[in-house]
Nucleic acid binder design. Structure first.
Lengths: 220, 220
DNA sequence: CGGCTCAAAGTAAGTACTTACTTACCAGCT
DNA sequence: AGCTGGTAAGTAAGTACTTACTTTGAGCCG
């Protein structure tokens, strides 16, 4: 499906070339960071001269920004947590809510490991765009999921605890698992389970951990 | 030509200067990564000329390796999980075991935030020393804590589940919380709690999530 | 169809500056 | 003297970014 991301002299239309350079740069930046990637390397990987990179992106910074922007905002299926959990919420099925979110995040990270690396690099290098992503996306998840938890607490389903703590626990399990899978232990030596199993176990433990002791025990 | 002007620092003994350069480099590398930190910056921060850096460390790589080595192996109080949990294990107090580990890790990361950043940078840059640390330290925690969980399962205290999953959940909560505190949300806008409270809540949720239903309750 | 135009796609070879690392030389001790 | 802590001033190889130039191909005209 990839036409050719390398040594072809084929002439491309402007927008096509722009997207190709962007795609190539994603992989390089995610593997070596901003400072660790040279414009020369990007050009070579795209099969064009350095000058072409600078025709499409005024500066290296602008290319980097375009990537983060592209990935975070309109990056294909951009992981909508609200949609993912909607079905479970309608059915008041806590397990479905958390499991769908966990599985969604895990498979998303598995299919696009570059994204997590890109974000980490960018956060470590204190790039403002990482902060922007965090402020926009992560805050949204905390508010959305926290709101759901608060509602279920009012209904007496969950124990009394700051919903933000529960969200942090849950996101912690999921993100840490992804981080292990594609950064620290890619060969899965410490733990090798499918995303489905992981999502199910994380959900099981969390829900069991925050479910209120019901006066008349009814299990579904 | 005045050879005695400028802010020439006090003359130091060799080993003393070496340690000072190392300390200064830790802070720079942890903030800007390996490629993002120049030897000139390190020298300036240490108050000596670049040549002095290269007298103590043959290459920039060697300096970096010395840092990771220093931090990971004999870095002051190097966080011994076995010791930390020993008291709880003797008392068969699950809560004490997990809470001590969580609090230990959280305060360790709080007092030495450079370490986590250094490790992340090093893992992203695929430095072999990060892998070494992971293989040695993290594997040890999985084996140690996993062994404890397995034992408590045999005693009927915990539900039947792969101990590695439980360890991953627990470490996930703790590490993700640290990562939030010193990388993504240092101003604690999403969640602002003390390390003690965090450790307690993480432990509560995890233990509640994996505790076996006591046999004297209603059978099903 | 062939030949012409002209902007866009493309390049080779710079520029000004930074980088890791070196060399040659001081100065203050015992 | 001789050894040690220290420096100023290099060097060769990058670095991001530019300039001045060449190639390509679609569209229009006869």
């Amino acid at each position: 499906m990839n036409p050719n991301d390398g040594v072809s002299g084929a002439r491309m239309a402007g927008e096509e070339r722009r997207l190709q350079i962007l795609a190539v740069a994603v992989s390089l930046f995610s593997n070596r960071g901003f400072r660790g990637t040279t414009t020369k390397e990007i050009a070579q990987a795209a099969g064009v001269s350095e000058a072409m990179v600078f025709r499409h992106f005024a500066t290296k910074e602008e290319l980097y920004a375009a990537i983060l922007d592209h990935k975070a905002c309109r990056g294909g299926e951009s992981f909508e947590p609200e949609k993912m959990a909607a079905e479970g919420i309608n059915r008041k099925d806590d397990r479905a809510v958390f499991e769908a979110l966990a599985l969604g995040a895990l498979t998303h990270h598995e299919h696009d490991p570059d994204f997590q690396r890109l974000l980490l690099h960018s956060a470590l290098e204190k790039h403002e765009l990482a902060q922007m992503f965090f402020d926009q996306f992560v805050r949204r998840v905390y508010e959305f999921l926290g709101g759901y938890i608060r509602q279920r607490q009012r209904e007496g389903a969950f124990i009394d605890i700051d919903p933000a703590i529960v969200v942090r626990c849950f996101i912690g399990m999921v993100m840490h698992h992804s981080l292990n899978n594609n950064l620290w232990d890619p060969s899965r030596r410490l733990l090798n389970i499918s995303n489905e199993d992981a999502a199910r176990h994380f959900t099981d433990i969390l829900l069991k951990g925050i479910t209120a002791p019901s006066p008349n025990s009814t299990k579904d």
